[in-house]
Amino acid sequence: MTDRGKWHERLKVTLWTLIVPPILWAGHFLFSYLWAAISCAKAGAFMTFPIVFVAGTLLALALIGLSGWIAWRQGGTPGSSAPHEDGTDIDRLRFIAKSTLLLAGLSFVGVLFTVLPVIFLRDCM
């Protein structure tokens, strides 16, 4: 495998990349509120085909999915068997990768739960 094919391994998960999925979730949450508020204020109702909302949601889900995938690949770095709880670089990497993966899962579900009301509710109340 070339170096080019291992870009996700060169991009090491750190405490900074750990917070990417929750930040995307929070950003999507804010985006949803802004989108609903602007739609209701300008159009008086949710738009019939909410292309901006669909695009923003897909982008958030894709980025969360990508960070989860990177974390999953790095967490699966071969080595000693579980539990990985020693103060070594590889165990730290595995820990952060697993935490990122779990946060990505939570954020993915969080974004979906934010989207569901828009699918079911069509009025601005």
Binding site: F113, L116, F120, L121, D123
Partner: peptide
């Protein structure tokens, strides 16, 4: 829990439609 909560959300949300 995520699946159960999603199912409950999908089930309960239509009740909010006027």
């Amino acid at each position: 829990p995520a699946v159960i909560l999603a199912a409950l959300l999908v089930y309960a949300l239509p009740a909010m439609r006027p």
